[in-house]
Amino acid sequence: MAIVAQHTKFSKIAWPVLAWVVALIFFFPIAYMVMTSFKTDADAVKPELLFSFTPTLDNYANMTDNYDYWRFATNSLITATFATLFTLVVSVPCAYAMAFNPTRATKDILMWMLSTKMLPAAAVLYPMIFMTKSLGLYDTKFLIVMVLSLINLPIAIWMLFTYFKDIPKDIIEAGQMDGLNTWGEVREILIPLAWGGIASTALLVFIFCWNEAYWTVRLTTTDAATLSKLIEGNRAPEGLFFGRLSAVSTAAVGPIVVLGWFCQKQLVQGLTFGAVK
C-alpha cells in the first residue's frame, strides 16, 4: 500500500474491482426496492420481469389512497423535528457546562447518562403505556416528542461534549476577560465555533428519531403514528403488493438516506463519542 514496489498489476485492478462488487452487493437491496417501486404490483412478482419492465409512477401517485402516506409522514416530520429541537435546547447548555466547567463528577455523570441508553426499553413498556394512558398522553405527538428526546438526549450530550471539548478553553476565558456573561459566551463564541458540530448532532438525532421503531410503534395507534408504524402495520401479507409497498418504503427512507450521505463523516465522530476521529 504505502510501498510502491509491492503494487503488482493484479492487485491494482483486483482490489478496487472487489471493493466495487462489495459496495454494489450492499446497495443492491435498496436499489431493488427502488426499482420495484416503479413496477405494478402484478409485475413486481414476475421473475421474467425482474430487470426489464415498463416503469410506472402509479405506486407513488396512489400512495395517499393506499396508505394515507402523507398523514404518517407529517407525523414523522413533526415529531422528529420537535424532538430534535427539544433535545438540542436541553443538551447544548448541559454539554457546554460539562466541557468548560468540568467538576470531578462530570465524568461520572456522562457515564451515567450513557448507561441510561442501556436500560432495556421493553422493561418499562407497560408503565409507559399505563402512565401515558392515565395522563391522557397516549398516542399524542407531544408524548412521542418527549420520548424521542429522552432516548436521544445521552447521545446528543456526548456528541456535543466531544465537539465543545475541542474548543480551546482559552478562547472562552478571553471572552470572559472581554466582558461576556454566560449567555454571551454561548451566543458569541460557542455557537459560531461549534456550529458544524451542533448541526451534525441535530442531523443525527433527527435520523434516529425518524427511524425509531419501538416507542413509536408501541405508544401510538392513529393520531401520532409515524412512518415506522405505517410500515410495521403493512408488512405485505404474502407479498401481494410489492410494488406499492416498495414505493411507500422508498418514500419513507429516501430523504433520510440522502441526509445520511451528507453527514457520514460527522457520524463517525458522533457515534463513537469522539473516540475515533
Binding site: 480551546p168 482559552d170 478562547i171 476565558e173 478571553a174 471572552g175 470572559q176 476577560m177 472581554d178 466582558g179 461576556l180 458569541e188 463564541i189 459560531p192 465555533l193
Partner: peptide
C-alpha cells in the same frame, strides 16, 4: 474578570477564529 480592568494575552493567543 471583565470588571477588574485587566487585559490578558494567552499562551494560545485565544483569538476568536470566526
Amino acid at each position: 474578570p471583565s470588571k477588574r480592568g485587566l487585559a490578558m494575552v494567552f499562551q494560545s493567543y485565544a483569538l476568536y477564529p470566526h
